[in-house]
Design a protein around this nucleic acid. Structure first.
Lengths: 127, 127
DNA sequence: CAGTCAGGACTACAAGTGTAGGTCACATGT
DNA sequence: ACATGTGACCTACACTTGTAGTCCTGACTG
């Protein structure tokens, strides 16, 4: 399995727009990005799409006048890679303090807490 | 409260070395970094220290021949800032999927699981 | 005192990032 | 067929990051 390329902050937004439904033309992707944040400039988005293709994160196939883009890595793979790097960088690799931080400092609804408890319980049973 | 400056990947290592005990001279910091990873070049470490001072992440006070460095932000503040940005970038701000990801994909000892369950329970009681 | 070494100040430099602008060709409306 | 607009392709450019090297000076060592 090829290594996930390094994806920068802004590129992540683009990747998420692609994962949201693919293959997608640049126009579609630009529209999704703008929907989320109107300050997105189409030129910027297209530049990033091109860079992501160069990096091997996306594939593009010509479709008449336009291109359609498709991710070359599943979101889950990229998430895992980014998570590892974050965990390492910020928490020195210590998982529990990290989870504790989020549980302590962010908002979780009671329903979400319940779900997490169930996840932990299942986790435990699985050894 | 001033905004936490943006701290890059490598700079995080330096910051953690400073948080590990301060004020600390550059020699001490260089030593801590090298202890963790012998490939650290002293020059590189000093450059990063200077950059962090420029960025306003560290303060330096002359102490005879050398400088002593001191963090201008608590580790917790920086951790919180980095965590927010990570959560946003990679999970689009969705906390629960993020926690679920880590619980699912990383190693947790039974003891750690227990601690997290307690945290969640306390969390719930606190409303 | 002369050589040596450590540390700060400045410099270097390529790759990666954020943020577009300009050009050119094809598709489309009139 | 002509004017327009849109997308691909190339170009730009300043800033950040990683990774040091050079130079100078004061301190320490014989």
């Amino acid at each position: 399995m090829k290594r996930v390329p390094r994806i920068s902050e802004t590129e992540w937004e683009v990747m998420r727009a692609v994962w949201a439904g693919h293959p997608a033309t640049s126009a579609e992707i630009v529209a999704r990005l703008a929907a989320d944040d109107p300050t997105w400039h189409p030129k910027t988005a297209r530049t990033l799409l091109a860079r992501l293709v160069e990096k091997g994160a996306l594939a593009s196939e010509a479709d008449g006048r336009a291109f359609r883009y498709r991710p070359l890595f599943a979101e889950a793979e990229c998430v895992a890679a980014a998570s590892d790097s974050f965990l390492d960088r910020v928490f020195g690799g210590a998982l529990k303090p990290m989870l504790a931080h989020f549980v302590e400092h962010q908002d979780l609804s009671p329903a979400e807490i319940k779900e997490l408890e169930e996840l932990l319980a299942r986790r435990k049973r699985r050894r």
